[in-house]
Design a binder for these strands. Structure first.
Length: 879
RNA sequence: GCGCGGUUAGCUCAGUGGUAGAGCACUACCUUGACACGGUAGGGGUCAGAGGUUCGAACCCUCUAUCGCGCACCA
């Protein structure tokens, strides 16, 4: 057995074990196994992405679940992969091309551009997979998938064609969200509203039928005036009723436009008149449809004004055009005023530029199975953790609108649709897996599908049939709540619609049984981690500094459920410190001879401290079990932390040093056996959180024959033949309390920690005598004597303990200091006693509270009074 | 406007009806036979506020304030 170095060195240990696990194919799932299945599909990171703390959090949680399941005897599949991230990757490569070659993708052409993306992907892609390996993730890398794998891509096409054939996918000209920077349509979910400061412009339109009279409207977008095709007010708005049917002159690109009424107008807003611009606003578009208004599109895809009729504005970028239009109106005396104004604007999640509502020909999906998708979550066939996300999910599904799935992007899954070349009124569409039989007459749609239209098949399409049969539906999905609509909801719909399960039963087709929503990690100031802020620590650096296990444990300990996490590197430091603590206490065990892989606890020889630590171990096992059931990883970590550090290291190990250093072989053996049992159990409980460290200690102490990875979680200790557990625990806690009182005495008497001092315990309790060496050790005293009739000289510091009165023998007692100390102590206890007594005098409390609670109060009061009497005696002696 | 979540020690957070907790930070003492990435002791909180239910409320109910998030609106 190799001697353990003083400090644990994760840099050497972690890669060693990870490589060994890979070599042993420990993470490879066997679909033919007779063990029950446990499966997780990894939310695929972007292929060109880098590991962020968000990934660390999510993937550590998945790893914990996978490793725990493996120990529990499940056949575990944790299936990893990557996402091609259509818009994101394309934008990155376009940026690169512009910088290096000053070219756009159109300069290169589709084929060449895609070749460049592949080149870029080969160079920068997949780094994150290596980073996940450094974190210790136990994924089945042999099954790693990519959303652009041939088989996967084929499935995406198949699904498109199937839904088209069912009439659920259709092509239509509708208002969509246009991202002028990426120059593509995006879905409603990709639009995030943000407050933006601007102006509310009050513009005067001359009434055609009443020259010299003007109608005033309020708008935030004067640059769209040229596309106005009506003016509208609410039918109930009496102010303007006389204008109905009349016209106004459009002030820019002068034209006569009608004045109409529409229920959608809010009479309270601005002047109560809306300029209707059907091409550039969703509400206006709807009004236009109701009134058959013309649609004038005056913005180019890049967001520039296209209006030769107004040369001052033609060609200007939309926000410059806004300023310029206001100036033009001002010059012509048509701008009544411009008020500073803040409103919410939809921004593109991707490009962070304002979305342009735009009329466009796109592909849409009418969602199938929305009712069923609601039902499976409502009826808990799928359970969400934390459960409150169920409501958010339901709200989305209840208000669901058709999904715009086409993207004007080249990188991705191309839409399998072709249009007949010769122009005709009704364009003929062909949708199929294969190109049409006479391809020369057809032209394929240039667009690709929304990346999420490929990801929604992820839960099953990454499994081969045999794997799917064993492992689908998956056990649990771990992901961030920010993609509950993008991904979680759509995967549920996909499962219900495409029925990839082994039967057509709903329960066999849902993609997962549980969904655990992780937290979002923020920086210490509560801001979201982002590249541009530079507030996102590099997890690889953290791994270098603290070890993967330290990072994992530290992060898990602060990971609350359903709330944001404020990241603080000090928490990671604690994780590392905990690893060192565990390492050292294992080292301590190793110094006293070889461990026993199957420690036998001799019920007769088991010390009271052994009883105590084993009870606490049992309690910890229970607490951890129930924390896991609710996915409360922070609680699991916290219980392990305090059990190891406090119960085991601070108390048990310190207490049983008496036995370990004693000549009594029975006692020594018993103490070491208890240590082995606790260490073995603790390591197994900790392994999912700190896989490398626990494997290393497991192996160095030879606590098992094979890898800890497949060891069953610890059973609770049975206490067969162990007598008087309750009484013995009471004794232990009395001893620990006495120790603390004694240490307090030392400290209050200002005696340095290293000064050896003498204590006298005055008690009639003879049975305590065999614990004197341990008490003495824990008190770091030179001598502790039992003396039932000790008479202390006045000024001797004393503490009233459950074991009796503990005196601190100091040669020259500082009477003044001791007097003060006693006064404080008396006051403290007196106050508590009064509180308890008051409660007991409350007849309502005595009658209605549970008997045990009342009894507890009575006992406490008696204790306090006894202490008071003794302390007062000691105080008397000082006068 | 609708909905969700938070507000507990200087900081990060536990705590679902019975004497307010942990870690960090702080103060004092200590290199004692696993560990200074450590040990011991200590200071520090009218649990956001107000009302209610209850013998008893950080916890349950109502309202208010405040922060964050989602949806809707956004002329």
């Amino acid at each position: 057995m190799a001697e353990l170095p003083k400090r644990y060195d994760p840099k050497a240990v972690e890669p060693k074990w990870y490589q060994r696990w890979l070599d042993n194919r420990d993470f490879v799932a066997n679909p033919e196994s007779s063990k029950p299945p446990f499966s997780i599909v990894m939310p695929p990171p972007n292929i060109t992405g880098m590991l962020t703390l968000g990934h660390v959090l999510n993937d550590t949680i998945q790893d914990i679940l996978a490793r725990r399941a493996r120990m529990q005897g499940f056949e575990v599949l944790w299936l990893p992969g990557m996402d091609h991230a259509g818009i994101g990757t394309q934008t990155a490569v376009e940026k690169y091309l512009r910088r290096t070659e000053n070219k756009t993708r159109h300069d290169l052409g589709r084929e060449e551009f895609l070749r460049r993306v592949l080149e870029w992907q080969d160079k920068h892609g997949g780094i994150i997979i290596e980073q996940l390996k450094r974190l210790g993730c136990s994924c089945d890398w042999s099954r790693q998938r990519y959303t652009l794998d041939d088989a996967y891509a084929a499935a995406v096409q198949r699904v498109f064609v199937e839904l088209y054939d069912k009439g659920l996918i259709y092509r239509g000209r509708r208002m969509i969200n246009w991202d002028p920077a990426a120059q593509t349509a995006v879905s409603d979910e990709e639009v995030i509203s943000k407050a933006q400061k601007g102006y509310l412009y009050f513009v005067r339109y001359e009434i055609v039928e009443e020259p010299g009279n003007f109608l005033e409207i309020a708008t935030t977008r004067p640059e769209t005036i040229m596309a106005d095709t009506a003016m509208a007010f609410h039918p109930g708005d009496k102010r303007y009723l006389n204008l109905l049917g009349k016209h106004v002159w459009r002030p820019l690109a002068r034209e006569k436009i009608p004045i109409i009424t529409d229920e959608a107008i809010d009479p309270e807003f601005g002047t109560g008149i809306l300029k209707v611009t059907p091409a550039h606003d969703t509400l206006d578009f709807e009004i236009g449809e109701r009134h058959n208004l013309a649609i004038i599109d005056l913005l180019t895809p890049a967001g520039r004004v296209n209006c030769p009729a107004v040369p001052e504005l033609h060609g200007l970028e939309r926000f410059e055009a806004r300023k310029k239009a206001a100036e033009l109106l001002q010059e012509r005396g048509l701008l009544a005023k411009a008020e500073p104004y803040e409103n919410n604007i939809g921004f593109s999640d991707r490009s962070d530029v304002p979305i342009e509502p735009r009329l466009s020909e796109q592909w849409f999906l009418r969602y199938p199975k929305t009712k069923e998708a609601l039902a499976v979550v409502r009826d808990h066939l799928i359970r969400f953790f934390p459960a409150h996300w169920e409501k958010v999910y339901a709200q989305w599904l209840e208000n669901i609108r058709d999904w715009c799935i086409s993207r004007q992007v080249w990188w991705g899954h191309r839409i399998p649709a072709w249009y007949r070349k010769e122009k005709s009124e009704t364009c003929e569409i062909y949708v199929g897996l294969e190109p049409p039989p006479d391809p020369e007459n057809w032209i394929q749609d240039e667009d690709t599908v929304d990346t999420w239209f490929s990801s929604w098949l992820w839960a099953y399409e990454i499994m081969d049939p045999q794997t799917r049969k064993k492992f689908y539906p998956t056990s649990v999905l771990v992901t961030g709540p920010d993609i509950i609509f993008f991904w979680v909801a759509r995967m549920i719909i996909a499962g219900l619609e495409f029925k990839p399960g082994k039967s057509s039963e709903i329960g066999d087709n849902i993609p997962f049984h549980h969904v655990f929503f992780t937290s979002i990690i923020r920086d210490s100031q509560g801001r979201k981690m982002s590249k541009s802020l530079g507030n996102s620590p590099d997890p690889l650096e953290l791994i270098d500094k603290y070890g993967a296990d330290g990072l994992r444990f530290g992060l898990m300990r602060i990971a609350p459920t359903g709330q944001d996490i404020r990241f603080d590197e000090r928490q990671i430091e604690e994780g590392r410190n905990f690893a060192t603590k565990l390492w050292n206490v294992a080292r301590f065990r190793q110094m006293h001879g070889p461990s026993d892989a199957a420690p036998q606890i001799d019920a007769q020889a088991l010390s009271i401290f052994g009883v105590e630590v084993l009870v606490r171990l049992n309690e910890t096992i229970d607490a951890i079990d129930s924390a896991y059931r609710e996915y409360h990883f922070n609680l699991v970590a916290q219980h392990l932390y305090s059990f190891v550090w406090s119960d085991y290291c601070d108390w048990f190990v310190e207490a049983v040093k008496t036995d370990i250093f004693s000549e009594d072989e029975t006692k020594k053996k018993s103490a070491l056996a208890a240590m082995d049992l606790v260490l073995s159990a603790t390591l197994r409980l900790l392994h999912p959180f700190m896989p490398h460290l626990t494997e290393e200690i497991w192996s160095l102490l030879a606590l098992g024959r094979g890898s800890i990875q497949f060891e069953a979680p610890p059973e609770k200790f049975a206490f067969d033949g162990v007598a008087n557990v309750v009484e013995r625990r009471q004794l232990v806690s009395a001893i620990y309390e006495t120790v603390q009182a004694g240490r307090n005495l030392r400290s209050a008497s200002k005696l340095p920690s290293n000064r050896k001092i003498r204590f006298i315990l005055r008690t009639n309790n003879k049975s305590i005598s065999e614990q004197i060496p341990t008490l003495s050790r824990l008190l770091n005293s030179e001598e502790l004597t039992l003396n039932p009739s000790y008479t202390a000289s006045p000024g001797t510091p004393v503490a009233i303990t459950p074991l009796g009165e503990l005196f601190l023998a100091v040669s020259a007692g500082d009477q003044v200091r001791e007097r003060e100390r006693l006064d404080k102590e008396i006051a403290r206890i007196d106050e508590e006693a009064r509180t308890v007594a008051a409660k007991l005098q409350n007849s309502a409390f005595v009658e209605r509270a549970p008997a045990a609670v009342v009894e507890e109060h009575r006992r406490r009061l008696n204790d306090l009074n006894a202490q008071l009497t003794k302390l007062k005696q000691a105080r008397e002696a000082l006068n």
